[in-house]
Amino acid sequence: MSETIIQVRGLVKVYDELIAVNGISFDVKEGQVFAFLGPNGAGKTTTVEIIETIRTATSGQVNILGLDIKKNRTDILRRIGVLPQEFSSFDRLTVRETVQYYSRLFKGEPDIDELLELVNLTEHRDQLYMNLSGGLKQRVGIAVALVNDPEIVFLDEPTTGLDPRARRDVWDVIKGLKKSGKTIFLTTHYMEEAEVLADDVAIISKGDIIAHGTTSQLIDQYCSTIHVSIRGAGPGVEEVAKNLGLTLENRENGTVTIEASNNDQVVEILNNLKARDIKYDGLDIRKANLEEVFLSLTGESLTTGGEE
């Protein structure tokens, strides 16, 4: 079991009237990718920025790297790396100059070219920040977050607004960071991002952590439905579902989806299809995802819930 590197207890943040974070507690383990998953306005940024010591909590305890956020601000800052939400940098510095500028703030002398290699920016090193695409800008932000060789890297929505290709590139960078032994605190409202990257997921909604665990734990616990989609099935499928007492959904494109609640039921569905000699064109068996976990927990969808 790895060590706890961030410990949050009873964290509360109130803005004027609004309770943005409502007494949450959780631990982050060393060397893991911890994903803070929640819709817009859930309180993700508020929470990470309190841990990063740049916002002040209303109440509660936070310990990071064995240090109290209230007392050891500068020590903490030297040992963490931060990619703020909607990272942006000086328009008229090149990629290399930007990374260099930030490394100077930490008075360190990292190998900048190596850093740029790490985030795949070597070929863009002399381009002005303002001329970069969104994905490249985010990677600059990640490089900047690494200038002090931090033990923990905070990435606040690193892929929001990126196209799928750019998103995957950023994911690759994050996987690389994990491999190099860094702890990663990732906030996101993309369940896929959490599923692909995270060892540990906390789902936050309206200031409360409503579920916490590994992706498969969460799915097993909150939404064990297995979707069996049958494409181009002949008559009699409805009968199969009915006999087994399962819900069946008819899609317009001729696909029917039967929702099984465990593996045995899946096998039974398939056996029934065979026994009744029902022909079909294609078969797809899919476990529930975090999106559905969130839906079943809150009755809202992850991407449209909260305030967009």
């Binding site: 990063e52 740049i54 500068t74 800052l77 030297r78 963490i80 931060v82 703020p84 939400q85 909607e86 990272f87 942006s88 940098s89 000086f90 930030y102 703030l105 930490f106 008075k107 900047v144």
Partner: peptide, 13 residues
């Protein structure tokens, strides 16, 4: 506005 001051806040500056 660009959030750069917030980033600077996370450095020892």
């Amino acid at each position: 506005q660009k959030g750069i001051l917030r980033k600077l806040a996370t450095t020892p500056l």
